[in-house]
């Protein structure tokens, strides 16, 4: 190869690298009056890649690509951090009035809004639909002296601070469950010991090392350890029992604690869209979640379908917001 050719080859390679670097999500405008979607939809996952919201956004993207691609398909981009409140404030400030900018969110975001004292809240956006739920489990290391929920409740009542709970981020679904559990059995939530981790995976390590007594997380985070016999389930927080390895897991209610809490996820649109636009987006999302590809995604990720829209959704979000606000302040967070 001659000198010049080589220089061009190297220059070309660097240019390609630069192009790769600039390839990033962008939006365009136009075509808002016809049927929805009239152009490509952008879905924000307000978290780093890999978590539940990201997976939900990408499952929506793949469903739209498989079955509704004629109108331009969908992009997914990530705005991670602060329990999703960074993404929320970006949606509010940058996407006002654009029905093609959607964002995945869920119960964790409600907790983060309260815990981080976020200046924007879910009231500032337009809820479209809830999509899925995930059951939460309370699990212990296989050798733990806690045999069932009764043992756990007894231990909590004896000395609330001595039971070390471990789960995901502070103020997230996992800690909300601990707070509500304490309150339901008559223990002051602020006195519970909760050790926050960056996610369920990190919590698993802590549980197995014995530095945490009770792990709290989505069932999928613990599933392989439970199947391997390294962890035991005390209860699931879902309204109905779940099976792992053919064994039914008791719900909290069946164990005598009147408490239900599931980690729901949903999708919202920016503020400033008209009622008509909201109805169109809602109708589209309903078609998406009724499709076969979405069904397959539910199975693949072990999600329970949980679709609420319209006034029913507004009421639900309202209740959940109030509920979260109470638990967060009971736990002494966000002060």
């Amino acid at each position: 190869m001659s000198n010049t050719t080589l220089r061009w080859a190297i220059g070309g390679l660097l240019a390609v690298l630069c192009l790769v670097a600039v390839a990033m999500p962008g939006g365009e405008s136009g075509g808002d009056d016809g049927p929805y979607p009239g152009r490509r939809i952008s879905i924000m996952a307000p978290a780093d890649p890999g978590g539940g919201w990201d997976t939900t956004a990408r499952a929506l993207q793949s469903t739209i690509r498989e079955e509704f691609a004629e109108n331009g398909g969908a992009d997914v981009y990530n705005v991670g951090g602060a329990g999703g409140t960074l993404g929320l404030s970006q949606l509010v400030s940058k996407a006002d009035g654009d029905p093609y900018q959607l964002m995945v969110m869920g119960l964790v975001m409600l907790g983060a809004i309260e815990t981080n004292r976020s200046p924007v809240s879910v009231d500032d956006v337009t809820p479209i639909a809830t999509l899925t739920t995930d059951a939460e489990v309370l699990a212990v290391p296989a050798a733990s002296p806690l045999k069932d929920v009764d043992d756990l409740v007894a231990a909590l009542k004896r000395d609330p601070g001595a039971v070390r709970f471990g789960g995901g981020s502070a103020g997230g679904t996992d800690q909300l469950l601990v707070g509500e559990l304490a309150k339901t059995v008559g223990v002051e939530p602020a006195r519970t010991t909760y050790i926050a981790h960056s996610g369920g995976g990190e919590a698993v390590t802590a549980i197995l090392s014995g530095s945490v007594d009770v792990g709290v997380s989505g069932i999928s985070d613990f599933q392989s350890q439970i199947e391997a016999g390294k962890m035991r389930v005390l209860a699931v927080s879902a309204p109905t029992s779940t099976k792992i390895d053919g064994k039914a897991l008791p719900t909290l209610k069946e164990s005598g604690v009147d408490l239900e809490l599931t980690n729901w996820r949903g999708i919202v649109a920016p503020p400033g869209i008209t009622a008509e636009q909201r109805a169109k987006v809602t109708a589209f999302v309903q078609r998406v979640v009724a499709s076969k590809t979405w069904e397959e995604n539910l199975g693949r990720f072990d999600w329970t379908p949980f679709v609420r829209t319209g006034p029913q959704l507004d009421a639900f979000v309202d209740t959940e917001q109030r509920r979260v606000k109470t638990v967060v302040s009971d736990l002494g967070l966000g002060e």
């Binding site: 991670g80 951090g81 602060a82 329990g83 409140t85 960074l86 404030s89 983060a112 815990t115 981080n116 981020s169 502070a170 103020g171 050790i195 926050a196 960056s198 967070l333 966000g334």
Partner: peptide, 22 residues
């Protein structure tokens, strides 16, 4: 810099939202 993992409080972010993530 960023939101404290254990309590969820922002630290050293100087009020800049984007620094919340560290």
């Amino acid at each position: 810099v960023g939101i404290d993992q254990l309590t969820g409080q922002p630290r050293l972010t100087a009020g800049v939202d984007q620094l919340g993530n560290g």
